[in-house]
Design a protein around this nucleic acid. Structure first.
Lengths: 116, 116
DNA sequence: TGACTATATGCGCATAAGCGAATATGATCC
DNA sequence: GGATCATATTCGCTTATGCGCATATAGTCA
């Protein structure tokens, strides 16, 4: 558990999770571990610009980190960041048809090298 | 655990918790059970209009409910709403000096009938 | 180096959110 | 009923947020 010195910081964490696209991204990363941007663009069926900006938001707020591998940049959820919240999102996601659809779409098309 | 049919609903829950004043209100209600609006106004040292508006926001999103008792309206956290999140807020609040200050201010002045 | 792919970011716009001040509602008490 | 107290809501304003589009950056491969 991160220690939040003021309510502002804790609120910022919730705000980071308060956007549907960011939530879907976090859920996919929680369930599948590590994904590159183009996997997310294809799975979420959103523009590259939207996905990239939300990833930047998550990154700036410490929820995800990334590593480059050649042309691709892989994102993952930052560990020891806010596990109880992540457990909650996992449970909510399991009962969430939209997030399950995302998972299915990812599994159907994901993992193939070369996204475009 | 509430079942969220889409990521929008889950995001709305986080958005409700993404505002510092609303978080402070929720924390106080979690720790002290039931408070009237004027207790909150005094404790948070904010205008009545701001507090009332945030309470309405929390109420419309199902996180709190209220009951009238004479002139006063008492708010409490809605049970069986999102307990794991509430546990998380309680833990975060215990390490949060601002929220602890709120608790102390409430305990120092609260409970007295007649707020103005 | 140049073409190509993957990703990030700047800009302008539309909408949402939060605030202060004022006003409305609703209960109590005389 | 009229005055008063507690609370809710409306209005106008300012700022924040998210998006599409275009462009920038960075790695790869020929």
């Amino acid at each position: 558990m991160i220690h939040f010195m003021d309510s502002q910081s804790l609120a910022a964490l919730f705000k980071t999770l308060s956007e549907p696209v960011r939530l879907r991204i976090v859920y996919l990363l929680l369930e599948r571990g590590e994904l590159c941007v183009c996997d997310l663009v294809e799975t979420l069926q959103l523009s590259q610009s939207v996905v990239s900006r939300h990833l930047a938001y998550l990154r700036h707020n410490g929820l995800v980190s990334n590593r480059r591998e050649g042309v691709w940049i892989y994102y993952r959820v930052t560990q020891r960041c806010c596990e109880p919240l992540f457990d909650y999102i996992r449970q909510a996601g399991a009962a969430n048809s939209e997030m399950q659809d995302d998972l299915a779409r990812l599994d159907a098309t994901g993992g193939q090298i070369g996204c475009g």
